[in-house]
């Protein structure tokens, strides 16, 4: 009989990340495809109304400030501003955050509910690797989703003759990455702490909409302007118009990593139920 081997196996984290990325390929293509197609439709709509933009600008001045703030509309004068107001400044972060939220809520609490966690953890994987591996896999998958969205935004623009900056498009999709991963990190922390996937989706979901509202209200009510600093969406900003603020990018990414790091001791301490 083989004697027990007392050394821990190596390469488990890489195997785990590779496995998780593979498991998310189909979902990533669907997410990227749907949001990318929506973005392509916005590009197409810009191409269709480009000549009427000055009239739209006049119309925009008559809009209530609350509406403009809610949808992050600053102007329609350029393709970047149009894309920001229609998609990148509000819908993209709100919708795409649910990709890491759903994925990372399922990484621990979801796997526990489904019953797959017992078999997986029957293997020699430390719990921290399950947390870090899940986070890395979703971070990589999200980059893939963003690449699809970017391609489906810029290629139709080029084909339709819309002068959308490729650089700004890249910056816009890349800026979504830390913001979405922040909410994913929150989902992972909840997934590590609670035994129910629904809670791990609900908490970051409510936080996301809460932060969105804070960002909108801070622009409408002068007395509440300072609450924007509490919202991740403030640090996300309007990257398709203004480019990436790398300090904000790094800060939000660090916050996402911190949430993942916090999930490690939380998961290590808790029991796993059937």
């Amino acid at each position: 009989m083989d004697e027990p081997v007392y050394k821990k196996p190596s390469g488990t984290l890489a195997a785990l990340v590779w496995h998780e990325v593979r498991m998310r390929v189909r979902g990533g293509i669907i997410w990227g495809g749907l949001l990318g197609l929506y973005s392509a439709m916005i590009v197409a709509s810009y191409a269709a109304v480009e000549e009427q933009i000055p009239q739209f600008e006049q119309l925009l001045e008559a809009y209530p400030q609350a509406i403009l703030e809610a949808f992050g509309i600053t102007s329609l004068a350029t393709p970047e501003a149009y894309m920001g107001g229609q998609f990148f400044n509000w819908l993209a972060p709100l919708a795409l955050s649910f990709f890491p939220i759903l994925a990372l809520a399922g990484a621990i609490a979801g796997a526990e509910e489904r019953g797959t966690l017992d078999v997986l953890l029957g293997n020699p994987i430390p719990r921290w690797q399950l947390v870090v591996g899940g986070f890395l896999a979703v971070a990589i998958s999200l980059l893939g989703v963003l690449a699809i969205v970017g391609v489906l935004t810029w290629v139709p623009a080029a084909l339709l003759g819309v002068e959308l900056s490729a650089g700004r498009t890249i910056e816009a999709v890349l800026s979504l990455w830390p913001a979405c991963m922040f909410f994913g990190g929150m989902a992972l922390l909840c997934s590590a702490a609670f035994h129910r996937r629904a809670l791990a989706v609900a908490v970051p979901g409510v936080l996301l909409f809460g932060m969105y509202l804070m960002n909108v209200i801070s622009g409408l009510v002068e007395e509440l302007e300072s609450i924007k600093y509490l919202s991740v969406l403030y640090y996300y900003g309007a990257p398709i118009e203004n480019g990436i603020d790398w300090a904000h990018f790094a800060g939000v990414a660090a916050a996402a990593v911190a949430l993942m790091a916090l999930a490690i001791p939380v998961f290590r301490r808790r029991d796993i139920y059937t």
């Binding site: 196996p9 785990l16 496995h19 797959t116 078999v119 029957g122 994987i125 059937t274």
Partner: peptide, 30 residues
């Protein structure tokens, strides 16, 4: 766990994977 084979009483396996794909994954982990 590196030296234990475990069959849980109640368990599920990833729906989309075949037995062979699962075993290859577990083999990599071990």
């Amino acid at each position: 766990r590196a030296n234990v084979g475990n069959l849980p009483g109640e368990f599920a396996l990833e729906d989309r994977l075949t037995g062979e794909q699962l075993l290859r994954f577990f083999a990599r982990l071990r």
